[in-house]
């Protein structure tokens, strides 16, 4: 004890206070971050596949993946995944609360092709620059202040996006 006391420079009262404050703050920040965390686990880190917009559509599937409609239906209603229901109405049974800020998606596949749907899910900003709709596969380098653990990630994994597209094309 004595050895420590003599060898270390004296820590001022304010300095000690600052350390305590910082520790408290860190503790609180981590607590509140977990409390306020959008119930989501970040999508697994995976290399970002570049995609190409052709005529306001994305004809090629992301990373060449094949989507599965049944999985897509789960993703659109999962609050921790796509959470499309937060804003859109969708013809899914047993859902009580829909958002009202975006157009209902019943019959969307009658109006838009698969390639057009893909651009809207991937990054609708190309169609409507001030849209509130998140880009679910937007280039991660364009994201401002990504939270801890989210840097370099897309909102959904490429497979999830393809599953959602596969589901949306069934809405005829």
């Amino acid at each position: 004890m004595i050895y420590i006391n003599t060898s270390l420079p004296p820590v001022s009262r304010i300095g000690r206070m600052k350390i305590v404050n910082t520790l408290l703050l860190l503790l609180f920040a981590s607590l509140s971050a977990s409390a306020a965390d959008p119930e989501g686990v970040p999508p697994p880190p995976e290399p970002y596949c570049k995609w190409e917009m052709v005529n306001y559509a994305i004809p090629e599937s992301l990373c060449g993946l094949q989507g599965e409609a049944a999985r897509g239906e789960l993703i659109v209603s999962d609050a921790a995944k796509g959470n499309c229901l937060a804003c859109h109405q969708l013809p899914i049974k047993g859902v009580e609360a829909y958002g009202t800020i975006a157009p209902p998606l019943s019959g969307i596949a009658k109006r838009l092709s698969e390639a057009q749907l893909r651009l809207r899910v991937v990054d609708s900003r190309h169609l409507s620059p001030n849209s509130i709709m998140p880009g679910f596969y937007r280039d991660p380098s364009l994201i401002n202040r990504p939270g801890k653990g989210y840097a370099g990630r897309t909102f959904l994994a490429a497979q999830d996006v393809e599953d959602v597209i596969a589901y949306l094309v069934t809405l005829k």
Partner: peptide, 13 residues
């Protein structure tokens, strides 16, 4: 704190 909670919800720093 409310602003912070909103930003965290946006998965922002």
């Amino acid at each position: 704190l409310r602003i912070k909670q909103c930003l965290t919800l946006m998965r922002a720093e």
